[in-house]
Design a protein around this nucleic acid. Structure first.
Lengths: 217, 217
DNA sequence: AATATTTTTCAACAATTGTTTAAATATTGT
DNA sequence: ACAATATTTAAACAATTGTTGAAAAATATT
């Protein structure tokens, strides 16, 4: 028995899809409520200001994702005890939930990641939500890496995390761009294929900073 | 003798700075012309539609950058002949002009890269400009890489390029985010430091796909 | 100096923006 | 059943949106 969707979710769904395509400023409340087949005033009634709609959209899935990622990270740390967790497992824990949802999670999830890709490069909009939910995870992740590479330089590791974050982010939004760039060059858009390449790529990148005296080469 | 700046450039400068902060839809023509201290109608007169202003902003510096990058790539290929160019030199040729301008190019260049970071993750706006100017370079770059790693899988290399592009992009826009995330963790925002880490990181990532049978580990 | 062309100004346009108000309807608790 | 609360509707708000038109001023050409 599927109960009828509540107005709040109708608005969030519509907003999510539109924000993904045109960004925060590129979408009007009326466009959202029209798509949701709902009166414009209901947006203000349920959420308040426009920015609050955006925050609500972000919050919905951030909680789910974060729970999953922390879980995976903790699991692989516990499995390896008393040794440090293997590097590629740590990175997999960091990326798996994202790539998996992006691949098999349906349209809503894909829209969500497209928004993330936008605001990750745009601090003004990411605001509290992103910091609140993703920064703590980043810290946990870096700690695990550091346990695996204790001799590595802290600053190096931080930048490596940065590169990982960028590669991951662009992957989300790049689905359409890919087919444009390649004329018969890039074959599959399957995100499983991405995952199989991202993890070794990033792992190798991190490992380049194993020895603190090899910087620059 | 410094001649007074022409209206066209005043508009482009103002637009560049504003687009960098709030994105295309988040900036109005009046905000642009106000910042440029110029009549609103002049925007339409000189450029036409709003999107044309955006395209003009993109075009201005894309030409400069591209010339530099192709030059560097050709140079390092010629230097190495008849051998293939070293991997780290290829990657340096791809990133150096960008990171250098982003670091020492002044406010205008920094705004420009912030816009790139936005539209790189947002196909609708990048449009013709990005494809026209950056895709050919990407192809040249991938060819050079392939010459260095002839046994590597084409699809692998394509994705590696993708990761590089993402890491590079996020680096441009991330300057502000960095100081937020780290409480005493991330030290320097100096982009020279980024460059010294990005190149070995990416080089190592590519090298992980040297042997086509090692995929997945 | 007179003419032609380019650039700038000022005013206005209809359309859309986010948000609020008050009345009508639906839902809930008792 | 009634009363209380929550939700929905429709209309309106002032402000801002991108763009245009016709004069005015500045510049270039002859």
């Amino acid at each position: 028995m599927t109960t009828k969707k509540k107005t709040k979710d109708l608005i969030l769904d519509a907003a999510e899809e539109l924000f993904a395509i045109r960004g925060f400023y590129g979408v009007s409340i009326r466009q959202i409520t029209t798509k949701a087949e709902v009166d414009p005033a209901l947006a203000s009634y349920h959420f308040g200001k426009k920015k609050d709609i955006f925050d609500a959209v972000m919050l919905r899935r951030a909680e789910i994702l974060n729970r999953e990622r922390i879980q995976m990270l903790d699991d692989c740390i516990r499995r390896a005890k008393p040794n440090p967790a293997p590097l590629h497992e740590i990175i997999d824990a960091f990326t798996h939930a994202l790539l998996n949802r992006s691949n098999k999670g349906g349209k809503g999830w894909r829209s969500y990641f497209a928004i993330i890709a936008q605001i990750n490069n745009h601090p003004e909009l990411g605001g509290i939500i992103m910091s609140q939910y993703f920064d703590p995870l980043a810290k946990k992740f870096l700690q695990a890496i550091h346990a695996n590479m204790p001799e590595a330089n802290d600053e190096d590791l931080y930048w490596c995390y940065h590169f990982l974050s960028g590669a991951l982010t662009l992957t989300f939004s790049g689905t359409e761009r890919i087919s444009k760039l390649s004329d018969g060059l890039c074959p599959s858009n399957d995100l499983d294929a991405v995952h199989d390449r991202l993890v070794p790529f990033i792992t190798a990148g991190f490992k380049a900073f194993m020895n603190p005296f090899t910087i620059g080469r």
